[in-house]
Amino acid sequence: MKLLRAILVRLMTMSVTLIGAAVVVFFVIRVVPGNPIAMMLPPGATEDDVARLTALYGLDKSIIEQFWIWLTGVVQGDFGTSISLRQPVMPLVLGRLPATLELAIFALVIAVVLGGALALTGVRHRETRTETAVDVANGVGLSIPDFLWALILIVLFGVLMPVFHISGRISPSLDLPFVTQFYVFESVARLRFDLWWDLLKHMFMPALALAIPLAAIISQLLKQSLKETMHLDYVTLSRTKGYGENHVILSEALPNAVLPTLTLIGVQFTFLIGGTVIIERLFSYEGLGNMAIDAVINRDLPLIQGIVIVFALLFTLINLAVDMMYALLNPRLRHA
């Protein structure tokens, strides 16, 4: 009963967030100058042509009216038609979403593994040169933004030592047996590891570029909270029981120290997904972010709206997942 209530409250706040995002994106992109109709017509089109096309896309109605038409459509799952691609928005967006999700998840995995390993190494060898080295690595990772990391990686592993692909999602010469857009997952499910490997070679650099700053933040915060936890009484008590340093760090300190890091990962993961927009462009990776930039350039209002709503939905779902994980790991919150 209590759980049901909590879920209902949660769904309510989520829908409020989504409606807020819908309102903001709808009005903001209409305030910005630029006319999608002008982008579509060839030079020398008559007034008549402009008026006809404007009416066709409903752009002659008042903004409030347009918003109402769009919102009623969205509620029924109809996000309108892309102006530049002349196809329904939803299938376009859903077709690209898996590529971005796979990239973001891969980046998150790299960030957690890298950041976690750095933090644990730093704590295991605290107050030594190793910890200083970890601090320096964190500082470098944090002070260079993801798109610069992308360029650095392209120069290093795309040009000087070409071991990874610098462009696209998969080599165009390959035959694709896929029925879903989740290529990485499907290639594993079909045991096509040749395709899987090719996908990873394409994904590795954009994912790493996205992951490095996040890894540095994770490492910094986790190391700090681990070091604080290492001084707590229950950690000291477990030392007197005969446990060594590794056990004390991993089983006593880590489960408690990881909680603030988890919240941070949730927030930062949404930033990381935001970062895919630029990174996908740099690597010509055919994901949602790349599509978003095209949509903005073409003033494709319905497509921009659709992409933003999908991103907003993704962000609220991530926040939900983080809260649920937090409750799972922290017994003090479980019955609250």
């Binding site: 707590l232 229950y234 008590l237 489960p255 003090r332």
Partner: peptide
């Protein structure tokens, strides 16, 4: 109050 691990 601090000598028991809160998550176990």
């Amino acid at each position: 109050l601090t000598a028991l691990n809160p998550s176990r």
